[in-house]
C-alpha cells in the first residue's frame, strides 16, 4: 500500500511538471508566432487587397458573351 501512495505522489509530480512544460512550450510558441507575424506583416496586409481589386474589376469588364465567343473560337481553331 505504501508503494501505491509513493507511486501516486510520483504520478502527481509528473502531472504537474508535464502540464507545466506543455503550457510553457506552447506559450513560447505563441510568442514565436507573434514575432514572426510582426516580421512579415507587409505581405499579408498589402498585396491581398491589391490583386483582388484589379482582378474583380477585370472580371466585371469582361462580358460573359464575349468570353464564350472567344472560347468557342479557340475550340474551333484547335479542332482544325
Amino acid at each position: 500500500m505504501t508503494s501505491i501512495s509513493e507511486q501516486l505522489s510520483d504520478a502527481l509530480g509528473i502531472m504537474i511538471m508535464g502540464m507545466g512544460l506543455v503550457f510553457i512550450f506552447l506559450s513560447l510558441l505563441i510568442v514565436g508566432i507573434g514575432i514572426v507575424a510582426k516580421l512579415f506583416p507587409a505581405p499579408v496586409a498589402m498585396p491581398t487587397p491589391a490583386p483582388t481589386a484589379p482582378s474583380t474589376s477585370a472580371q466585371a469588364t469582361l462580358d460573359p458573351k464575349l468570353v464564350s465567343a472567344i472560347t468557342s473560337a479557340i475550340h474551333q481553331y484547335r479542332a482544325k
Binding site: I4, A11, I14, L26
Partner: peptide, 28 residues
C-alpha cells in the same frame, strides 16, 4: 497562426493525459 492563443486550449486539453496517469496508478 491567425489566432495563436488557441494553443493554450490545445495545452489545457492535455490535462486529460496527465490526470489519467494519476488514475491509472490509483487503479493499482
Amino acid at each position: 497562426i491567425a489566432n495563436p492563443k488557441t494553443l493554450l486550449l490545445g495545452a489545457a486539453a492535455q490535462f486529460g493525459i496527465f490526470a489519467t496517469l494519476l488514475g491509472a496508478i490509483a487503479l493499482n
